[in-house]
């Protein structure tokens, strides 16, 4: 029998999808509802029963009304610690969000428990022990990790699992006052949401992106032209943004935008796992690259091998003809 604590995150009225994905992962592992407690972190939870009830689990533990300063991890690591001491779980699951990726290591080191960070899956062996699977070396390798401490923490990459939707369970919500000192000298002053011109990368039906192999900022003019014809948004790999060819607001990947278009067309992007983490939910990936061994072709449906300098003109000319029709 496990005692699993799942952290959920409520930002304003916005319940992060992570909790639904973590519950889906637990469902895959045949963990039953009575083994699971969902702990919610957020502001003014007591007015938010209606939202919390959407979580398909049987038990929810929420803290009484406190100001978390915009989900400040320095505050919430203290609060989450109190919830953990209260529940004494043997497994903790956290979604790797802005908050989760800071919280998981803090909790691990506070309690001296092992953590599998950026976990992509959990396997269960015949003894019911769990093994976390995580990418290393930019996703070129995968590793399997067994945690040897009595409590195990898994920080799971978002959007890897589908959401669990079980309308038949309705959770009991318990509010508890956690009275420890939540003072911190670190304060969130403001959040600035990025504005980009034209179609937003995250909303676009078609995205065309360029990588380091383009060699400079100029080829992005051709990508812009193609995007104009297809009503697509333009993106870029991290190498391109780091080199200053494009602004970081165009960056797709683990350390950039997370996109899920119908068609993702890549030009000269090798497709390191950090990049794929931001576009893995694209329905169709189509790639142009000179290297047939490039990682991107593991995910691409169609590939064009060769020098983009020769392939793109053929693609663009044909596109213009197709648009005329």
């Amino acid at each position: 029998m496990n005692k699993v604590l799942v952290l959920a995150e409520l930002n304003g009225n916005d319940l992060d999808n992570g909790v639904f994905e973590l519950l889906s992962l637990l469902n895959n592992l045949n963990v039953s509802n009575d083994e699971i407690t969902v702990c919610v972190l957020g502001d003014n939870l007591q007015d938010k029963d209606g939202i919390l009830k959407q979580i398909p689990c049987s038990k929810i533990l929420a803290h009484s009304n406190i100001d978390t300063n915009n989900l400040n991890p320095n505050i919430l690591s203290k609060l989450a610690s109190s919830m953990i001491e209260d529940l004494q779980p043997n497994k903790i699951l956290i979604s790797k969000t802005n908050l989760g990726q800071d919280l998981a290591p803090r909790l691990a080191f506070k309690f001296g428990w092992g953590l599998v960070n950026d976990c992509l899956n959990i396997e269960k062996n015949e003894n019911n022990d769990w093994t976390g699977i995580r990418p290393i070396f930019g996703g070129n390798f995968m590793s399997k990790i067994n945690i040897k401490t009595p409590t195990e923490i898994y920080c799971v990459r978002p959007k890897v699992f589908d959401s669990l939707t079980d309308k038949t369970i309705s959770p009991e919500i318990e509010y508890k006052q956690f009275t420890n000192d939540l003072e911190t000298k670190t304060k969130v002053l403001k959040r600035i949401n990025e504005q980009s011109e034209g179609i937003k990368l995250e909303d676009a039906d078609i995205v065309i992106a360029g990588g380091r192999g383009l060699g400079g900022p100029e080829p992005f003019e051709t990508l812009d032209e193609i995007a104009g014809l297809l009503n697509a948004a333009v993106g870029a790999s991290r190498a391109v943004c780091d080199a200053g060819w494009m602004d970081h607001s165009y960056q797709i990947g683990l350390t950039g935008k997370d996109i899920s278009p119908n068609l993702y067309l890549t030009v000269a992007i090798s497709g390191a796992s950090q990049h794929m983490a931001g576009c893995g939910n694209s329905k169709h990936i189509v790639s142009i690259d000179k290297n047939v061994e490039a990682n991107i072709f593991n995910d691409a449906e169609f590939g064009a091998i060769g020098d983009w300098k020769n392939i793109l003109p053929g693609f663009l000319d044909t596109l213009k003809d197709l648009v005329k029709e």
Partner: peptide, 25 residues
């Protein structure tokens, strides 16, 4: 406190259809 039990190269998916042509254009 963490024990690695395996490191491996992820399996490749070979379903990609490569487009043919007389030249790159």
């Amino acid at each position: 406190i963490n024990e690695i039990t395996d490191i491996y190269i992820p399996e490749k998916n070979s379903n990609c259809e490569f487009i043919k042509g007389e030249d790159e254009y």
